[in-house]
């Protein structure tokens, strides 16, 4: 078990480093800089600005500087919101995005797994139909169409819920964004669970249990444990999908999370902010995958000795 954690950790660190290096390199390769405003700045001011942001140093030195400050938890100053450091922005934005993501994944797991199991056990029941309908919907109607439709239905027509804004996380302001984020994940989790559960119920070792006359609840519990493995390994990609989704959801609902800062930063060429977002998001995905890997090792004995 310890070996599993160590090897996974040993592969996570280079991944993280590669993310930082890749995003850094891309930024520096790009034509145009953050101070390419419509009107030219005074050369002296420009030189000062470049010095403050270490843009006058050679590339490896800039990377060293960046890595050094990253290790100290300093993400650098924002070039768009001049009075703020990226740390300041993230300190407020990150908890909001994480809260949305956690709520969405929890909702997706609860609803998706329940739906998937029901669909697998009663093959022609309403749950199986629901899984099929939901998968098609989740596939064909992207999140950026779902969000405005929900706004029209619940915000403008029924007037049950606010159309946007965050209001310091008031529950009524969370419902629509979380639902929007969770909907495609519910579809995927439900389909995954249903397929895995059907496979598990047809597996030879389940036939063994039936051959030995064990009770149905015992058999279903065995099947479920095997069926949840694919769902567990989907959590890694799900985290990435939720982060991607948060870009759209936070933009449409006007939520001050990192997704929205990322889009604003991208549109205004805020190098440090965009880079910091990619690094943070990359780190979150890498760490999350690490946790999922370790959890998988705990559940599936076959992985531990690889």
């Amino acid at each position: 078990m310890l070996r599993l954690i160590l090897t996974r950790l040993a592969s996570a660190i280079p991944t993280l480093l590669a993310v930082v290096a890749l995003s850094f390199l891309l930024m520096r390769l790009a034509p145009g800089g953050p101070f390419d405003a419509e009107r030219a700045l005074d050369p002296k001011i420009l030189a000062n600005l470049r010095r403050i942001y270490h843009l006058d140093l050679p590339l490896p030195a800039q990377f060293g500087y960046y890595l050094w400050s990253l290790l100290h938890g300093d993400l650098g100053p924002s070039t768009h919101w001049r009075d703020f450091s990226v740390n300041d922005l993230f300190a407020k934005a990150l908890p909001i995005s994480v809260q949305l993501g956690v709520e969405a994944i929890a909702l997706a797991l609860v609803v998706g797994i329940t739906l998937g199991i029901t669909g697998a056990v009663w093959r022609r029941g309403p749950a199986a139909f629901g899984v099929a309908a939901l998968s098609t919907f989740g596939l064909a109607v992207p999140i950026f169409v779902v969000a405005p439709l929900l706004q029209v239905a619940f915000g403008l027509t029924l007037r049950w819920l606010p159309v946007g804004g965050w209001a310091d996380g008031a529950p009524s302001h969370q419902i629509l964004p979380v639902l929007t984020l969770a909907l495609p994940q519910i579809a995927i989790v439900a389909r995954l669970t249903q397929a895995a559960m059907r496979d598990a119920l047809a597996a030879p070792h389940i036939r063994t249990l039936r051959a030995f006359g064990l009770p149905a609840w015992h058999i279903n519990a065995h099947a479920l444990r095997g069926a949840l493995l694919p769902v567990l390994s989907y959590l890694g990609p799900a985290a990435a999908a939720l982060l991607t989704g948060s870009i759209v959801v936070e933009t449409i609902f006007g939520i001050p999370g990192i997704g929205r800062y990322f889009v604003d930063g991208a549109l205004s060429r805020d190098y440090t902010l965009v880079m910091a977002t990619v690094v943070i998001v990359g780190a979150m995905v890498v760490v999350f995958n690490l946790l999922v890997d370790i959890a998988y090792g705990l559940v599936d004995p076959r992985v531990r000795y690889d």
């Binding site: 280079p14 993310v19 390769l29 034509p31 991607t244 991208a266 549109l267 998001v281 990359g282």
Partner: peptide, 23 residues
Amino acid sequence: RAVDIIYALPFIFFVIVLVVLFG
């Protein structure tokens, strides 16, 4: 291994970075 590394990342972030940087 290189593919695994890139695979672990939310790709749309990188597309956005590429598009923003290179027009």
